[in-house]
Design a protein around this nucleic acid. Sequence first.
DNA 1: ACCTGAACACCGTTCAAGT
DNA 2: ACCTGAACACCGTTCAAGT
Lengths: 216, 216
Amino acid sequence: MVDDDKPTPDEADATAARGYHHGDLRRQLVVWTLKLAEERGLDEVSVRDVAKAAGVSPGAPFRHFPTRVALLAAVAEQGMDALAAQLEAALVAAARENPLRRYRAMAVAYFTWGIRNPIYFQTFASRAVVDYAGPSLRERHEQAVGAMADEMKAALRLGLVRRGIAERYAIAGRALAYGIARLYIDGHYATLGLDENMAVREGEAVLDQFIESISR
Amino acid sequence: MVDDDKPTPDEADATAARGYHHGDLRRQLVVWTLKLAEERGLDEVSVRDVAKAAGVSPGAPFRHFPTRVALLAAVAEQGMDALAAQLEAALVAAARENPLRRYRAMAVAYFTWGIRNPIYFQTFASRAVVDYAGPSLRERHEQAVGAMADEMKAALRLGLVRRGIAERYAIAGRALAYGIARLYIDGHYATLGLDENMAVREGEAVLDQFIESISR
DNA sequence: ACCTGAACACCGTTCAAGT
DNA sequence: ACCTGAACACCGTTCAAGT
């Protein structure tokens, strides 16, 4: 980078513009990673690109993240926060309904979020990232989908669904929600000409029929 | 797995040792890509590694594949061959059963193959690879899963499943099979302590309960 | 304390030169 | 026709030096 004019680092604004982020760089890097990934795909974003976008030197990110995958893990953690919030909100909104309806609300929230936030979804569906992030990320995800499974089990207990093994309803419900999200993200709906919103509606319709089919 | 050693390398020893593969290099590169990916993960295999494993210079692969992703696309095409063969075999084996049983046979074949061949599965679930490979790969996959969907629709027509919209049963069945495979490949079963074989059996159990639940 | 910028080893890809 | 091996631009990562 060719730089003739000196940045006069005694002004706060000027320093920030020149790359000093006074403790905020870490967050900025995550923000830019997400933004660039949304533009060109996760694989296409390099740490150097992120550094440049944030206005810092190529080595700067490594003061905050030991490796590139650590940076992606930070994105994943942030995504997990957002997903957990959505699921929690869905659960609260359906609080006074029956377990099967609560399962539905969470499953819809799950794949809707995945379809609308494919980058987040990819980061914490990536083995390398999740392995790096350590057990906490996986546990949080497990807990989130576990809540879905719990509703399914409750539905069986209350006789809302046909006879069967609770754990299998739970996994089926989970695989279905996951499958719907992943079918879209992996581009399988593209052949069908479905955009984001249509994919969500289609997902809901499929889920509803599934629920109705297992109901009794 | 799906490949055997190449037939009778009679006089090829000298040239092969020198790196000359007399037209066979293309195939060797695909074989080595798969092998290295199984050892260390798809992201960790570079074209240079593959070249070295095949005993040729770093630039040699680019005479056969214009880009790295083209090499991966060749792996994906080979994977698609294998998957199509498995599904076809499953369909033939269940030829004299009812459509619901045929759907089951194909769904099991689908996720079993995915669980047992995660590298193949990843290659043709990758957007970049599939986009490069062109419409034919996607169409073949679409046709393969379309056969599953057809059985589901036939099952509805014959009154084997509860009332509903055929297309939604088809998508649910597909999302379920896809979700089961992907849950394992993305490492979600690892938390549950399930290995490959247990994942397949668990998948079958879940699928069977799903089928029973929608049956009438 | 936080960032720069030069360095290193690596990678995808190209291409003139060899057989 | 097929491969070599030296390039080039890029990338992840490190680190001494600056503020």
